[in-house]
Design a protein around this nucleic acid. Structure first.
Length: 553
RNA sequence: GGCGACGUAGCUCAACCGGCUUAGAGCGCUCGGCUCAUAUCCGAGAGGUUCAGGGUUCGAGUCCCUGCGUCGCUACCA
């Protein structure tokens, strides 16, 4: 297992990757960070850990500066809008999080400046001059990809300075003919000398090696990090010639900002500090960043791995503060659109969160996204799969079992759970299921844990069917059925919290605690409130989705 | 171009460091059963030369080589 034994720590810090503030996230973005982090947070809380979940809107960088210019607002305004939209999403999706902040927070800016001064003082920051592309009309440096021109290979007019999307060839800005700046749409793109500051990853690599070796990362994380170390680390530029961002605190770096990826991840610390400062007990943040009585978990999508497995730990090490380093990178693959295409707002592909909310209650999306969380490979969205997961698994199997047991108790036992001995076979099956569930969650495999819950429901249906209490009047099947269904309700909490709470309330267990699983509930009165989830009509959804897309386009 | 991952039943996927001697599961399909339950549930069955070709091994889906196909990364997008 790539985590410490559960008994080793009493504290869990969940650090979800920071959604980028350039626009509303799509379903793939959501499952890649906050939704996964929220589910893990609920799991660890359920198990009684002192759990803190932090994240925020990644507010800086080239893309935002560009997007803001394109839409005619200030970067600050754009980010503010997106940030408040994400806060709304967190509410409607019931995402359990303690502090969702932004990298515009004063606490963050102060922290970043401070830690860079330390890295500098410790000799891990170097500087060098280089040539970068520059627009003489806008008077600004440009990222290579913000140069647009004609591809020398295929002739496409939309080739970017780093790569041509049409034919896939890698390019240098000079290779484009008729190169134009994306901001002003004019020519006059030249090379200009500029000084930048670097984090000396090369110097840090022995310590990074040691760190990577100590963590037993799995899958893509191990692969990516291993590959980078094997290729050899070079110093990496941590400043940019932009206006929008955190001013670089180095002598001679006036007018430059810290590269967005060189500060966003530091937000995990600043968000923790901010959280406890708001609580009026600031020093408590140290509990989550020093010593060994904490396990840090980082839910994210695979494109974030190099930054979290290499660069972020490198910064922490370079600070010399002795911070606790990331323990688990719970990286997911991508959720792609139908047929394996990437989500794209401009091309009208995929479902963005604002659209998702209009189509379906977020509780359904939660279950679909967490159940199909891309853990071993990319997953393609399909309406048929949504149908299968929601109607086939959540409703026809899990919810149906709960309903058939509860309504049976209501009709045949006056709503009182019959007393009696629990079939050891059922107790054993449940024990195994719970063990697998916990192991999966603690390995960051949320989808695997969801499948365990579903398999318990399958077992429950088989068992209930076999006992056929409606014929035999034997209460054993009912006793076991209720016990199983109660456990399932608790295990569902990280996935569908509202549904789980509704069922537990109906079962006379308003406190959805982990201990509820083991209570033998004979004699308990159940309520008759409705908890059923309506089935979804996927054909209708698809029709409304297309309608929605046509209106926009 | 360089590096890497993947390619298993109609579909979506399992199979930890090569080994529970007939490669598993769900969906779909065929047949049967139940009727407590949101037409929900249970059982049985058909269906695969594990992309192709070669090699290592007592033994390979699992390791090596070649080819084909899909995808990702290539450090100034995040």
């Amino acid at each position: 297992m790539d985590i410490k034994n559960r008994r080793d720590t009493s504290r869990i810090l969940i650090c979800s990757a920071w959604p980028y503030g350039s626009g509303i996230p799509h379903l793939g973005n959501l499952i890649g960070c906050l939704l996964s982090g929220g589910a893990l947070t609920r799991y660890y809380r359920l198990r009684g850990y002192e759990t803190l979940h932090v994240s925020g809107t990644d507010a800086h960088g080239t893309r935002i500066e560009y997007e803001a210019a394109r839409t005619g607002v200030s970067p600050a305004k754009l980010v503010e809008q997106v940030h408040s939209q994400i806060l709304e999403i967190i509410k409607t999706f019931d995402i359990a999080i303690d502090n969702y902040t932004t990298t515009e927070s004063p606490v963050h800016k102060e922290f970043v400046v401070d830690i860079y001064r330390k890295m500098d003082a410790n000799g891990y920051i170097t500087t060098a001059e280089e040539e970068r592309v520059y627009c003489t009309i806008c008077n600004r440096f440009l990222a290579d990809r913000l140069i647009i021109g004609r591809c020398p290979k295929c002739g496409s007019e939309r080739a970017k300075g780093n790569q041509c999307d049409a034919c896939g060839v890698m390019l240098e800005p000079e290779e484009l003919s008729d190169a134009k700046c994306s901001f002003c749409g004019k020519g006059m793109v030249v090379r200009k000398r500029t000084r930048h500051w670097y984090l000396d990853l090369e110097k840090l690599s022995p310590k990074l090696r040691q760190y990577i070796a100590s963590r037993n990362f799995r899958g893509n994380v191990k692969l990516f990090a291993g590959q980078m170390l094997e290729d050899g680390l070079r110093p990496r530029a941590i400043t940019r010639d932009l206006e929008w961002g955190i001013p670089a605190p180095f002598v001679g770096a006036e007018g430059k900002v810290i590269y967005v990826w060189a500060e966003a991840a530091l937000g995990y610390l600043s968000a923790t500090i901010e959280h406890f400062r708001n609580q009026g007990e600031e020093e408590q943040w140290r509990k989550f960043w020093f010593g060994d009585d904490v396990k840090q978990v980082y839910p994210q999508a695979k494109d974030n791995i190099p930054f979290h497995a290499i660069i972020f730990p490198a910064q922490l090490i370079a600070s010399g503060e002795g911070y606790h380093l990331p323990d688990q990178i719970a990286a997911s693959e991508y959720l792609n659109w139908i047929g394996g295409e990437r989500f794209s707002k401009s091309e009208g592909k995929g479902i963005y969160v604002d659209e998702a909310i209009k189509l379906l209650d977020p509780e359904y999306w939660r279950f679909y996204l967490l159940y199909d969380r891309p853990e071993t490979h990319d997953v393609n969205f399909s309406w048929a799969e949504l149908d299968r997961v929601i109607n086939g698994i959540l409703i026809d199997n899990i919810s149906n079992l709960i309903n058939r047991v509860l309504s049976f108790i209501e009709r045949n036992y006056d709503g009182i759970v019959p007393s009696g001995k629990l079939d050891p076979k059922v107790a054993e099956r449940l024990k195994v299921g719970i063990m697998e569930y916990g192991r999966a969650m603690e390995a960051g495999s949320i989808a695997a844990a969801a499948r365990v819950v579903a398999s318990l429901a399958v077992f429950g249906n088989e068992y209930f069917q076999q006992k056929r209490p409606w014929q035999t009047n034997d209460p054993q099947g009912v006793i076991a059925g209720f016990h199983l269904v109660k456990a399932i309700a608790v295990l569902l909490q990280p996935f569908v919290p509202r549904f789980s709470t509704a069922i537990l309330t109906r079962m006379g267990a308003s406190q959805g605690t982990w201990d509820e699983i083991n209570i033998i509930a004979g004699g308990r009165k159940i309520s008759s409130e409705s908890f059923l989830l309506a089935k979804i009509d996927v054909a209708e959804l698809e029709r409304r989705y297309n309608e929605m897309k046509n209106q926009v386009g």
